[in-house]
Amino acid sequence: MSLAFLTAAGGASAPAALSPFDAATTADGGVFEVRDGWRIASGFGHPAAEEQACEHAVGWADVSHLGKLEIQVSADAADELAGLAGGLALGRAVRDRDAWWCLLTPVRALLLCDPGVLAGLRQELEANAALKVLDVTSQFAALRIGGPLARETFARFCALDLRPERMPVGACMQGSVARTPGVVVRMATDQYVLLTGAALAIYLWSVVSDAGGRLGGRPVGVDALSAPSELEEAGTHA
């Protein structure tokens, strides 16, 4: 037996993976394409309005296809974990090799990466016997929320202290979001990625749509918010 059943089907003949938001993005008029084995909403049929929303209000894009790895170590190997990616620290999201590395506890880290690099990173990490690596991609729904009113949108459904001095670019924060456990990474001045449990995706979509919609925002395609983040530009020193 193995844990292969935790990783989405791969290969040319494999069925496209469906985001946990799929029913919601479909209902909202998503326009889809298959990328990296995932059915992805590349837009919602109103490119100009979507761009406007991101520029002047808030936009949210389904990025659940981002690869996610959990790394755990035993207490005596905490240093090993903290030494990854040039140095991890609690509350920080370190950008390294097309992935964000978030140390969640001294013995557990979460990696968020482009789907294309998932398998390679995993292999590399598994080579280190001290690390217990688990593919948790399916476990989380992921939203990229961006725009000048992104923080105000968060304020409508979560009590996390996202003030810039507490949540600088490159910070990672775990806590209750919309009454469910969440992880928030600030990738750029007005850009955040939010992770919650996959089963709550449809609920979360309705919460973000409700809050963001009142502020003039709307759902946007996966590329609308992918302007290079300050974090990516600044590398690990963000």
Binding site: L90, G91, A159, L160, G175, S176
Partner: peptide, 11 residues
């Protein structure tokens, strides 16, 4: 101790 200060409802 890991995450910092949160509302008590987080816990």
């Amino acid at each position: 101790p890991n995450c910092g200060t949160r509302e008590v409802t987080d816990f």
